[in-house]
Amino acid sequence: MKGDEAACVLFDAGHRACGGCAAAMAARFILEAAGKDTIIVSSTGCMEVFSTPYPETAWNVPWIHSLFENNSAVASGIVASLKKQGRKEKVIALGGDGATFDIGILCISGAFERGHDFTYICYDNEAYMNTGIQRSGATPYDASTTTSPAGKCSYGNPRPKKDLPAILAAHGAPYVATASIAYPPDLKKKVEKAVNTPGPCYIQIHAPCCTGWGFESEKTITIGKLAIETGLWVNYEMEEGKVTRVKKVVRKPVEAYLTEQKRFRHLFKPKRNDAEIAKIQAIADRNAEKFGIDIKLKA
């Protein structure tokens, strides 16, 4: 091994993630970008559980897990301690979308308001996967989860995804970005930028979950790309509160993304639900307009 040898060593094999796991890919990409002088503060969740069953750890950088909801408060303390000791390690708080959007938002808000020099990275697989695919504040509209199941009088999750990047940008975060495991070089560039930007930075990584979303394990990247190509996920950067870079696409209809996943199956079977599909298309259209992602093809 050459270039990626260090990275492979920083997040080791033998972890117990499902085959095709985007979170495991994200862990590798993050460490490849951040390097060995990084302290990882993990929330409880899939990534924590699959990488650290005692006495096994897949982490070859300093790593700490305390609770589900406190990684950014723990990170605050670590950053303060490093500052006091004159140490230079980077600190990354790492959590799933449940830890980030829901239960941990108080601690994140406090840490961002106080301006600690750390990077918060959310691997967003759009539900509570570790406990068995329950909805979170990051679950998209109409996704069927075990607590927002589709049924005779339900089309799945009744609410759209919370706009957490905007919330954290509003805290004055100098750098906020979204990324996807489908585009590793872009993801790594953003992580590198975040850890080298003073102050609290936020990166939200789209991490398709084959187990929770219902697709084959080899399709993780395909699904990640389709989310972007349909406008249901937008990769962008915000610096000092302003959107500075956006990934543009030739948009596909949202069905291209929805039909590939069991969590949206109820929108097509037993019969196609045009009204609901139109609502999801409207979400993509609004994203496209807001971020200006459409590449206009010449007629």
């Binding site: 303390g77 670590i78 303060a80 108080l106 308001e113």
Partner: peptide
């Protein structure tokens, strides 16, 4: 911003 974070921050600083 809370006692919960106070002790969490102490935990992190102690770990460091």
């Amino acid at each position: 911003e809370s006692e919960f974070s106070a002790l969490s921050a102490c935990l992190g600083a102690s770990a460091a």
